[in-house]
Amino acid sequence: MTYRPPRLTDAQRVVWPEEFGTRFTVFADVEEEFDWNAPLDRRNRATTAMVAFPEAHRRFAERGVALACMVDYPVATDPAAVAILSRVVEDGRSEIGTQLHAWVNPPFPDSAPPGSSYAGNLPRASEAAKLETLTRAITTAFGRAPRAYRAGRYGIGPNSFALLARLGYRIDSSVRPGYDYSADGGPDFSMADAGAYRAEGIVELPLTTVFTGGARWGGAHLYRALGRIPKGRGLFARAHLLSRIALTPEDMPIADALEAVAVAAGEGLRLLNLSFHSPSLVPGHTPYVRDAADLKRFHAWWTVMLDEFERRGIRNASLDEIISALE
């Protein structure tokens, strides 16, 4: 059964303190390398792209930007990767979080249901066991229990929040508004919005997705309807009527992302949540960075985006600052 976030009440929505202002945060999915176009395989555990992480962190740190490093099992159990990330968090603002890639995270059951790469589709006991194993590995590796979580492939399910709260997590960032993964057995976030909310003891910080264009008033409802019309979404995007823009350098042109920031800020979104995958820091590991030219564009995207935040007075927020504001 496809997981869809429940309809929110006004009481669930986070009201940020006035002094928090409008802020942005950066989540890095720190993970192993694998062929994104091939079937998922638990034997894919290489973390060679981590050699590029210190330089990427330096670029962010020089701009005063903290990274929420969402670490999965292959990374948490690789001593070289742990050493790199241990130095990253010495900046005093970056923090280690958790990312569950169910297909490479023990324990491995004898059989798994369809769609089991989405951890939220697993039986409750199996999802719990994988979360416990990963949380324990991260706590052992870094000497501190993680407080933030992201499901690999954005694959949360009906049991996820309660399981996370039981393990002491405070924040989840698995909801990707405007995206529907149900055709592949994953969750449907097509009608979710980008605002933070509370549920079952967890605060959800969705990745920021914004609809832009002359018909953006139609939002998720119109975008979903266009998906039922051959080439409908493409026609509306080319006509600058409606585009779905996620705040990431991966497959999102900077001009579109800047327009999305203007819309989000104009509509009063108080926390913008940006993200990238660590293997994108080395060409050839993700579909978004295939060569040196792509990598150059990747870094340039961040430079322009951080300049825009500075121009608008939108400051960075670390996980610690976010949690303090929520309290």
Rank of each mutant, 00 (worst) to 15 (best):
I254Y: 00
S174M: 05
T208I: 14
I254L: 09
A151G: 06
S173E: 05
Y169S: 00
P187E: 00
T248Q: 03
S280T: 11
R244H: 01
G178Y: 07
V175F: 02
R147C: 00
S243E: 08
G234L: 09
A264P: 02
V261A: 11
T248A: 05
A192E: 10
R270C: 00
A151P: 01
A237T: 13
A255W: 14
F236M: 13
L205G: 03
G227R: 09
D193K: 00
Y181S: 06
F161E: 03
S190D: 09
P230R: 05
G234M: 08
R147S: 15
G168Y: 08
S190F: 06
Y181A: 07
A255C: 14
D172M: 03
R224T: 15
R270A: 06
V175S: 03
I229W: 12
L235V: 09
E259N: 12
S278K: 08
A237C: 09
G195I: 03
R166H: 12
N273V: 15
G234E: 12
G152C: 11
G155N: 09
I156G: 02
W217F: 14
D193L: 02
P146Q: 07
D172R: 07
R150W: 05
V263D: 04
L274E: 02
A145N: 03
S182W: 07
P206H: 04
G266R: 13
D180I: 07
R166I: 05
Y149G: 03
A215V: 09
T208A: 00
D180F: 00
Y223A: 14
I156K: 00
S275N: 13
D251A: 12
H277V: 12
S243R: 03
G218V: 14
P279G: 02
I171N: 02
R233A: 11
G268E: 09
P146G: 06
L271Y: 10
A151Y: 01
L222E: 06
E267A: 14
F142Y: 13
A194T: 15
V175W: 02
S173K: 08
F236Y: 13
Y179A: 11
L205E: 00
L242I: 04
A262Y: 06
L163Y: 04
R170F: 01
G227I: 14
R238N: 13
E200A: 13
L272I: 15
G143T: 12
G186Y: 00
R144A: 15
S275A: 12
P177N: 05
R233S: 03
I156T: 01
N273S: 13
L222P: 05
L271F: 12
L167I: 10
Y154P: 07
A246C: 09
E267W: 10
A255M: 14
A215T: 10
A262I: 01
R233W: 15
R170L: 14
S173A: 11
V175Q: 07
G213F: 01
L274R: 06
R147P: 00
L258G: 14
A265K: 08
A162K: 04
P206S: 06
R270S: 06
G227H: 08
D172I: 07
R166N: 15
G155R: 03
F189R: 01
L281W: 10
F189G: 02
Y197M: 11
